[in-house]
């Protein structure tokens, strides 16, 4: 049984993670900007906007007060607004960076003291195949996730003295809210560029989470694993 925090937990992939981790008997803390309709005896929901420093501080203070420590932090909260670069409003770019990168940065920072109390502390960040594929129409999104990848590699080094591993998962297209606005044709074109030319399923991401969390994965850090055979 582990204590796991999932950000962006109220829907999509985050909710799948919460359900999966609860089914394994873990205690799961979820956060989202709003309330969650989900309930489970081992699920504790917190309202927090990961791009707001005060919210993030309060989130970790509340978890610390009631539960003392966490074993795993999964930085899943993210926004994606597909737009041609020339037409991307500055505000949208800023929000994308604030949630995807700054949110991940702050959660990692605030989590250190709680993770240090765990025997197998893990940070798992979420990237995307949009980074290695340099996808058109995703300048802000891909750049924000590229920053998450750099952060992941640097933290792997800086936090290794605390035995904290830090890795990232780069999903290929999965049918979630995040890519709802992307045309079917574009998705099909993307999938065709993968070694495995199929849409991924949430289970494919959950499998990687299980892998990173395992105590035996203590020597795996600073790695970005993409689904679908993208490299």
């Amino acid at each position: 049984m582990q204590q796991i925090l999932v950000t962006g937990a109220s829907r999509g992939l985050g909710l799948s993670m919460v359900e999966h981790l609860l089914a394994q008997g873990n205690i799961v803390f979820g956060c989202a900007r709003g309330q969650s309709a989900f309930s489970h005896k081992n699920y504790h929901h917190f309202e927090a906007d990961v791009s707001n420093e005060e919210d993030v501080s309060n989130l970790f203070i509340q978890i610390r007060k009631s539960f003392k420590y966490i074993d795993v932090l999964i930085n899943n909260a993210g926004v994606a607004r597909m737009n041609a670069f020339a037409l991307t409003p500055f505000k949208n770019m800023r929000e994308t960076i604030d949630v995807n990168y700054a949110g991940t940065f702050m959660c990692c920072q605030k989590a250190i003291s709680l993770l240090r109390k765990s025997a197998n502390p893990r940070i798992i960040n979420m990237s995307t195949v949009a980074v290695p594929m340099n996808l058109e129409g995703e300048a802000a999104y891909a750049a924000s996730k590229s920053a998450v990848e750099s952060l992941t590699r640097v933290l792997a080094k800086e936090l290794s003295s605390f035995n904290i591993t830090c890795n990232a998962i780069g999903p290929s297209p999965i049918a979630t809210d995040l890519i709802r606005g992307v045309g079917e044709e574009k998705i099909a074109r993307l999938v065709k560029q993968q070694a495995i030319q199929k849409m991924a399923q949430p289970e494919d991401v959950l499998n990687l989470i299980d892998f990173f969390i395992k105590p035996q994965s203590k020597m795996i850090t600073g790695q970005i694993i993409y689904l679908g055979g993208i490299s």
């Binding site: 501080s57 610390r64 003291s113 800086e158």
Partner: peptide, 21 residues
């Protein structure tokens, strides 16, 4: 530098135990 980080985190933690953030 990481030893200093660890010390500062421990001190911040002890202060939080006394509701000092």
């Amino acid at each position: 530098s990481m030893g200093l980080v660890a010390l500062l985190i421990d001190i911040e933690d002890m202060l939080l135990d006394q509701d000092i953030q």
